[in-house]
Write a protein that binds this DNA or RNA. Sequence first.
DNA 1: GGGTGGCACTCACGGAGAGCCAGTGCTAAC
DNA 2: GTTAGCACTGGCTCTCCGTGAGTGCCACCC
Lengths: 344, 344
Amino acid sequence: MLDERKSRVLQAIVEDYVATAEPVGSRTIARKYSLGVSPATIRNEMADLEEMGYLEQPHTSAGRIPSDLGYRYYVDCLMETPEVDPADAELIRRTFERKIREVDVLIRETARLLSETTHLTAVVVGPQLSKAHFRELRFIPLDDRRAVLIYITDSGFVENHVVELPVEITMLELERVAEILNQQLRGQPVESLSRTALRIVQDELKRYGALLEQTLEFLKENLEPGEKRRLYLGGTTNILNQPEFRNVDKLRSLLSVLENDELVAELLEATEPDSDKPTIQIGEEIKIREMADCSVVSAYYTLGNEVIGRVGIIGPKRMEYGRVVGIMEAVTRQLALATSRYRF
Amino acid sequence: MLDERKSRVLQAIVEDYVATAEPVGSRTIARKYSLGVSPATIRNEMADLEEMGYLEQPHTSAGRIPSDLGYRYYVDCLMETPEVDPADAELIRRTFERKIREVDVLIRETARLLSETTHLTAVVVGPQLSKAHFRELRFIPLDDRRAVLIYITDSGFVENHVVELPVEITMLELERVAEILNQQLRGQPVESLSRTALRIVQDELKRYGALLEQTLEFLKENLEPGEKRRLYLGGTTNILNQPEFRNVDKLRSLLSVLENDELVAELLEATEPDSDKPTIQIGEEIKIREMADCSVVSAYYTLGNEVIGRVGIIGPKRMEYGRVVGIMEAVTRQLALATSRYRF
DNA sequence: GGGTGGCACTCACGGAGAGCCAGTGCTAAC
DNA sequence: GTTAGCACTGGCTCTCCGTGAGTGCCACCC
């Protein structure tokens, strides 16, 4: 725990550095932040803070910048989350009051909204199929060899997939397959439609072999933990406005990471499972080497009590944490609300 | 038309500049490309070519680089398209021999494939709904107020959409609506399901007012020329490897363009409608200012005789046009083949 | 003893100048 | 028409200050 004055000094340094991207010196603080002491005193405090690991010095004759630890202390103990800017609040309200009926569009719009309000890069991981409850599947025959398999959950996802039919199957038999599957599976949490549960059904339906196998395969593909993710990035180019990424090589390695959906989705998994405050990962706390200069603010949104998706903001460590957290809270609240409209 | 020797000189300059990204001088050409004449002669030829507008000089004491016109002459008259590299050919073959059943996945994979083989940025605009023929729609009731509207075309697209029902409608009536619409519209080219054609049906079905309106709205949204595009970018970060984009500001403006799906899709519209060779746009031939240093190679792919989608490669003007064209031809051939598998 | 003013020291940054060199344009000769 | 020779150009790199922001330390003061 830092004493009052050290806290104020650290806070001043973080906030000034966030605003200017320049190492901040003792005189600047004495002038801009009225701590009522002289630069020399602040120099001493800064020397202490550096020794304790909260500050770093790019080179001997430069000002100080916060270390990862310094940012960590700042977000944990010093940061305030200001009211969301009225213009942003208005934008958020307006975005969600439009009735968006397609889940994909909703995700995309959310990502755009977050990136526009924070001027950073936003990630949204869409409602996960596996968190929903199975409702019903249907086959729509196309010709004698193929049908569309349609799969609906009670949170309103509709997925479809063309499956090949065993040649001999009749329209009636097809309906029978659907009926049996529906009876066995309706209302089940999709997550627990595990291989074993499905296998029971499979036994019962041995004779529809190939068709069933494809259906199951589709269900598996879409429901396993590694299910296809609905992931959307917004405002990737906002990164380019950050002075820390003027360097093209750094930029390239970061952008390569962002092109990898797997990795990005994992980033957001770090969200603390029970907190309803956004989680913040700072610099080297992120395991990805290329992101050592970045921070990630992430949160989840819920449908009922169920976590069904996540949002994140990726930016330089030097970001306005308070503002970002405020925006994120406002957006996830609205997003949960919007998602609940899909339910039936 | 350039005489033989001028052609050889221009070709040498383009190819050397493509390979090295450095302005090329008369000595380099004399040494590396055996034209059988001395540097001085080549200097004279270069001076001529510059006067004719095929070459430019970054500054007085530097070598020459091709102008837009120079590239244009090169791709029109001098370029050869070499055999696709065996490793790439193998990769292309393998990608498409996997049975990909989801259209979205196919597009994504194609974009990835193109960007990996060309080391440039790839765009794929997916099969357009509006080019298909209507086959059938279905309602699956969810509760007494909502149903899923499912829409199938004969080229294998399945789209779905939650619609709100007029409260009084019964299951049977719902089926009747679908039936009437199906009868009226089946087999129609989707493009010609214009507002007027739909209005006729609408008259007939006045009593289902709200539901019908929503259905029509959905059809319109998805079928109008401005329909939602299935567009996918691959290898965006490949741009960063190009020395011409070491400059972060140039890079930013280019990436902003690429974030705009509308603009990117328009780029590919320029594809010449009847040629089966890829179309090449060079530098300022592209109307987008931010892309003045880029070239776009684009082509379409067909299902039957119908153009249903487009692919493009975006790179610096200094790209290996021959190789890119070769790869693109191979990929579009395979893509058309793969798409035809969806048909029924 | 904590706070402060003063002072020497450090180091990144930017501009000026020198040398280098790839490449040109021109001229004269073949 | 081709080529060799040569003076000239202009960007690039390296080095060398000068400048200024900022530090660390010391002595002094309340």
